[in-house]
Design a protein around this nucleic acid. Structure first.
Lengths: 221, 221
DNA sequence: ATCATCATACTTGTATACAACTATGCAAGC
DNA sequence: GCTTGCATAGTTGTATACAAGTATGATGAT
């Protein structure tokens, strides 16, 4: 997934386009993909289309049926919990590593993001974006390519569920506070504290998300 | 990767065979793959071969060059550390979850594995195998499919490095002791303790591996 | 002698044709 | 009426042919 700037080939375009349609729900969960029709729609032959499909399957953004034939995986509340847990483990690790690797400039950058986060805390979309920027910065500082790789896959998956998780003002305030303590721990160079804070922070996000989903009536998939 | 029991197709066979050759170093790090030659050697056309190659690329068991063309990724001591860290995060999460999900039968099974582990602690290969069985059992109890998925990918990667990490008797004794305390924590249902023990345990394995590698002269790749 | 340029062989990327397989509907038998 | 078997349409899996791009070596100029 970090290999996006590869050689511009038809298969790459199809991959990006299909991924976009899946994440935006233009392709609906449960919907089956028919190769000839999709190839015609995207104006390529089946060969590069199949290549893109296979790649998406191995990222679990498409699902192969035992009988042959692929479809967009159904959304499932149980898996959300799993995703948040794994993401918590990743963010926790990265926060830990960031403690020993962060430069003074890094710390400054984190504080700058925090400031923007605070200024935008009443606007759901912007606050979310700043929060993601903070985690991305920490991931960059940590510099574990495998952790980033998995984290990116998780993020793609969670993108599919975002429509269900409109954050409340209360949750945004809580998240901001947690981000502050997280940055403090990183700045202080306390790996154990940072790891625990990051883990609990993501798990709190999970609880909020699950609550929002069940409240929204679980009209799912 | 858990989707192994898929429909028996040529591409699946090629995938499994190529993966085997990479993990066993029959295909050497740095070696480039030429599609026509490899297709002929495996007695399939380039189409299923390419499908297998693409899948292995997305698992980082093959690497695509910007210029086009794929090769077996070079082994690199730095990445070992990353892999162990991510694995530590995964095992830590799974140990945590196992605490709340383990049945009495599960605990019993863990103790049985521990007993075999203890009996075989002087035999490097068997001890390693029992250790992996223990972690696999815990992963099964935890029941987070995404964690397992990532854990499997990490395990495949580490398989490539196993030749360099012959464990010492001291390390095996230490690992057994750590496994004991881990099972105790799971049996006691103490998630925080189990998570910390699992994390530290894998990190200790990392230190031992890195030490063994640098001692073995770092004649790498 | 060194470097630039080009021709050539070979590689990967794509399209298309074909084979094998799956599912659906209809008819025949129970 | 319900099930079983089969024919048919349509799908996926594979092979092959072709186009586009890449690297290597030779040839010529400086």
């Amino acid at each position: 997934m970090p290999d996006s700037p590869a050689r511009s080939t038809g298969a790459h375009f199809v991959y990006a386009e299909l991924k976009r349609r899946i994440l935006t729900r233009e392709l609906k969960p449960g919907e089956r993909l028919y190769e000839p029709a999709m190839a015609a729609a995207l104006q390529v032959s089946r060969t590069p289309l199949r290549e893109a499909i296979r790649r998406l399957i191995s990222e679990n953004l498409l699902e192969q049926q035992p009988t042959g034939g692929v479809l967009v995986p159904q959304l499932d509340a149980a898996v959300i919990s799993e995703l948040y847990e794994v993401r918590a483990a990743m963010e926790s690790l990265m926060a830990r590593n960031a403690c020993t690797k962060a430069s003074a400039a890094d710390i400054e950058a984190l504080h700058a993001i925090l400031a923007r986060n605070a200024a935008l805390v009443e606007f759901a979309d912007d606050a979310m974006q700043q929060g993601m920027a903070l985690h991305a910065k920490i991931a960059g500082i940590a510099g574990n390519s495998w952790a980033r790789r998995f984290h990116d896959q998780i993020s793609s998956q969670m993108e599919r569920y975002r429509h269900f998780t409109n954050s409340t003002q209360e949750r945004r305030d809580q998240a901001l506070a947690q981000h502050r303590t997280l940055v403090d721990a990183v700045a202080a160079g306390d790996p154990d504290a940072a790891a625990k804070i990051a883990f609990d922070h993501v798990m709190a996000a999970r609880d909020a998300a699950l609550k929002a989903i069940s409240a929204s009536g679980l009209a799912f998939s």
